[in-house]
Amino acid sequence: MKLKDIISSLNLEARGKIDKSSADKLDKDITRGYVSDLLSDVMANSEEGDLWITLQTHPNIIAVASMKGLAGIVIINGRQPEEEMVRKAEEENIPILLSKLPAFELIGRLYKLGIVGLKGNA
């Protein structure tokens, strides 16, 4: 499922300017998600192309997402990102999406859309 379709089906709010390169990212197909609030965990265990769900709003999360090549970040529980983080996200071309839902609910809905947490049939 394309990221922009996920945004519209789950009522996510996109933050930051959308220019051409980030528009490309919204057209990207998403197949898997990863949820964690621990940066070290995401560094160690997320996979390229994962949609990252977290309630961290610390600017450091952009560096992690960029390094791991993640498809985007969904910030949950209605939390607002710091301005510095949005600016960094624009620089690094990482889509920042906001949801009012808690992790469990949001992931449940994503799962029903076919975004799973496992690679292949593992």
Binding site: L101, I107, G117
Partner: peptide
Amino acid sequence: KYSMYECCGRLYQNGLPACGIP
């Protein structure tokens, strides 16, 4: 052994609700 994401998805799909929905 599953990731947190996979756990949430599986349990939600089997009818366990979330808490703290606004």
